[in-house]
Design a protein around this nucleic acid. Sequence first.
DNA 1: TTTAGCACTCCGGGCAAGCGAGTGCGAAGG
DNA 2: CCTTCGCACTCGCTTGCCCGGAGTGCTAAA
Lengths: 349, 349
Amino acid sequence: MENEVDGLDKRKAYILATVVYEYIATGEPVGSQALTQKYNLGVSSATVRNEMADLEAGGYLEQPHTSAGRVPSDAGYRTYVDALMSPEELGVDERRRIRDEMRDARAQLDEIVEQSSRLLGRLAGNLAFVTKPQSDTQSFRYAQLIWIGERSGIAIIVTSFGVASQSLFELRNDATPDDLTRLSNALNATFAGRLLRDCDDRSLAAVTKQCGFGEDMVGAVRAAFTGARTQEQPGIAASGAQHLLDQPEFRDVRKLRSILRILEEQRTLYDLVAGAFDSPAASVKIGHELGSEELADLSLVTVPYRFGERAVGMLSILGPRRMPYARLLALASGTAETLSERLHDVEVK
Amino acid sequence: MENEVDGLDKRKAYILATVVYEYIATGEPVGSQALTQKYNLGVSSATVRNEMADLEAGGYLEQPHTSAGRVPSDAGYRTYVDALMSPEELGVDERRRIRDEMRDARAQLDEIVEQSSRLLGRLAGNLAFVTKPQSDTQSFRYAQLIWIGERSGIAIIVTSFGVASQSLFELRNDATPDDLTRLSNALNATFAGRLLRDCDDRSLAAVTKQCGFGEDMVGAVRAAFTGARTQEQPGIAASGAQHLLDQPEFRDVRKLRSILRILEEQRTLYDLVAGAFDSPAASVKIGHELGSEELADLSLVTVPYRFGERAVGMLSILGPRRMPYARLLALASGTAETLSERLHDVEVK
DNA sequence: TTTAGCACTCCGGGCAAGCGAGTGCGAAGG
DNA sequence: CCTTCGCACTCGCTTGCCCGGAGTGCTAAA
């Protein structure tokens, strides 16, 4: 039937939506009377009570204890996010403010990523974090192999976002500085503009051998490119942890400890967003969907940012399940958009 | 007189030391009876009471409220740290463990700095942070100016710790790739091994002009070196914030918020240790000495680490004033030592 | 100068009472 | 058959109170 949503009739859906909305707003378990008083439901509290009992039986609501109001369950939030809430858009002035604040960062990849995480954390009033562009979605810009002595050299590779990575290598044969320059030029000519992940080992070896180098040099070049590809892979800027302290759900200090630990282990932080990485659009993970008991009463909103058409990184907001999803999605999208724009400023042309 | 310490007679000094020691150990305000029971003072609790009243009048102790025990004041801690406590040394096995764990980090500046902050945070059970080497204490290793088109080039400067910084510049005249190589070689020859801060603008200009370049190129080279000098200046690795949650003094969430905020603002974090930067030895700042009301019940232990003879950065521990100063000083020194050793592994020779 | 004794203070835990918000259910009404 | 009303019941939270324990300051005696 068209007046069913997710297996709920229209009235149940509306009541669920209202409960979630009210709980998000107040943080207090919401009861039937309070609901009928504040919202014009057109039915009495007793009816609402019956409906709420049904919703609880269906797993959408939970009761902290008898004689308390209802609170949404993971499933309740999920339905709300997927089907019930009305999406939000940022106002023009909000957009402008985001853009203005993003301008404060200098045109350096690290700076604009950090700035966007600070900005998002502050606007969203929650913990925000932003992954640096996956380095294998960046493209190769320049390589320079530098002779630094009879037996060793240093390889520098610059990506399209102006990130330089360097690695040392040994020189086994009697290569001259000129040889290295020749090889640098050949690499630059061959791979210019190509995605880093497409600079595969085979073509690297081919170019190196063409310049008259042997296996040892192939290994060095390969290592240099691998270094550039994996460098800073899980690099993440996080910010806004202090806002979590305002949330009543963190009166319990143990929760906080989990968060702080996660914050310091970039690895875990990265795993959190990793799941969202395949999907090109915004994603919301609620409570247990995060896959960890520690994080069971948190939610995560993740939005990709792009360079051109390609999604290159993620902006995320981590906060209590009881978060204003529509608003945060709008904020994250807006910030992602601006970040994407600024990405063009750091591009090495 | 030789049996006075800091204006306190011997018995007062001993009682003060015991009070501080006991308070650090238990976290409870310490009363006269408890003290005489646990420590063999050779006098009755009443006498201790009188002495404590004197110490309070002298500003060394404070009373949270009437009918509670005494707690050390900033001045009390200060006297304890300066004159009363007995310094600690790490055991051989502890040293070995630190060394072993530091070996886990790869030979990259960032990694060993982060590893040492993680290690120190965990061992000290407090928030630890480590500044990266001041970049102007590093020395110049290589410069490479790369021709990337008719009108632009990229300058890459590698420091003695293998940190590469890059900057873009414009080419106004019709310089060729060979010209740039020639200039690179000249820079390398002239400045090899010199401290970055000693690569002054005048000598840079001289070398550049000698190679036949004009003012525009001088500006570019100067900018590149300035970039290398100031890059990452306040770079700080922090870790162990979650330990602070165990401390009873953080039951008050507002305290925690200050800390988290500071943690995210590298600037403030840097200012904290900046004061200790001139002094070559370990330094302890207690409570209000930190210069901020927010941090008034915290203390900071700071120890420099060296490269060769030169102090290049700082290891710090931030925790409640009630911290085991002697132990933390020993831990920080031990970690600093090991960090200093590992610094040689990242040196670009 | 030290010690013993004593009255006083204050914090914190434990307990009971009362309040308020909310539920569930049976019966009445449309 | 669905909705509504009325009512008894539940339960957590707050308030007020009491009491024990730890500690202090003061006075007087050794």
